Amino acid sequence: MDATDLMRMYLADPDQPFPPVELADPSGLIAFGGDLSPQRLLSAYSAGIFPWYNPGEIIHWYCPDPRSILIPTDLRVTKSYRRAVEKADYAVTMNRAFAEVMAHCGEPRGGDDGTWIGSDMLAAYLRLHHLGHAHSVEVWRDGELVGGLYGVARGRSFAGESMFSRARDASKIALYWLCAQLTAWDFPLIDCQIASGHLTSLGAIELSRADYLALHTSAAARPGPPGPWQFDIPVPTSPNHLPV
């Protein structure tokens, strides 16, 4: 990468727009620098761009090609997955514990001591949540938060950021009910960003960046659900499982 490329990619001014996504490098990196202000984050998500970097590093912005997405109606539900959902030994909520969900998503896992969700990320997405743009789904058992996920909505396009599970299938239960609600709201996609074996096993597919952006741009241009997000489909809500 030469000096001209670095200058093009560096966001030196708060109002500087992102470069065209077609100029991203092979990893999908489109820009670096800037900040995590609500304005910058909303501009990024509207354009199909997301931040991804380690705590202490300069902010990196990505728009990879290909792009992993999950069509909510295409969630792959195996027999064991369906049994876990239908057992209903849990309560599921939306936007009840956003900060806690994100904090759990940022905990090291799988023997890895690191995390890409640092304190600046936590603060930035909590601001988006308070502004009504970032949302969480929570799964509770016996008053304990055992699983969940969070992401950012633009219109009727939802970008899933991360999920966590402290009990078997808890994050998959959160995803099941998110997909059910987004289907009811006529959301055509959940942006999964980068493919993984786990997401693929759940039905995620890869699209070219151009095809993803066409789908995302159309969905993001449609008005989202009015008012604060809450489930308006029947979900397990046993008070025995919710926190006091």
Results as ranks from 00 to 15, higher is better:
A221P: 04
I173C: 00
Y176I: 06
S165L: 10
H133Y: 09
L213F: 05
D191C: 00
M163Y: 06
G227I: 02
T217H: 14
R141A: 05
R209A: 11
K172H: 01
T217V: 01
Q193I: 07
R127D: 07
L189V: 00
A134L: 08
D211T: 14
G160Y: 01
L199H: 11
S162N: 10
I233V: 15
P188D: 04
G147D: 05
H216G: 12
L199W: 07
A124V: 10
S218G: 05
D232G: 03
I173P: 02
F164T: 08
A210D: 12
V152Y: 03
Q193S: 00
S165P: 10
S136C: 05
D232L: 09
A220Q: 01
A184Y: 11
G147Y: 02
G151V: 03
I190N: 07
M121G: 08
L145A: 12
H198E: 13
V137E: 04
T200W: 13
L175E: 09
A174H: 06
E161G: 04
A124G: 09
H129A: 00
A167P: 07
A221R: 04
A170K: 02
K172F: 00
C192H: 08
R166V: 04
E161Y: 05
A210G: 04
A210R: 15
A214F: 10
S162G: 11
E144G: 04
A170N: 00
L178D: 08
T217I: 00
D186S: 06
A220R: 02
C192K: 07
P234M: 15
G151H: 02
P226N: 11
S201T: 11
R166D: 09
W185V: 02
W177M: 10
L213G: 07
A167D: 13
L215T: 06
I205Y: 04
A220C: 05
I173R: 00
T183R: 07
G224E: 05
A167S: 13
D186N: 11
M163T: 09
G147I: 08
R222E: 14
P225T: 06
A220E: 02
F164Q: 13
I190Q: 13
H198N: 10
H133Q: 04
L202A: 12
P223M: 04
D232M: 04
M121K: 01
G160A: 15
C192Q: 10
I233G: 03
S171G: 13
E206D: 15
Q193D: 09
L126W: 06
A134W: 15
Y125W: 12
D186T: 03
R141H: 08
A134F: 13
R222K: 13
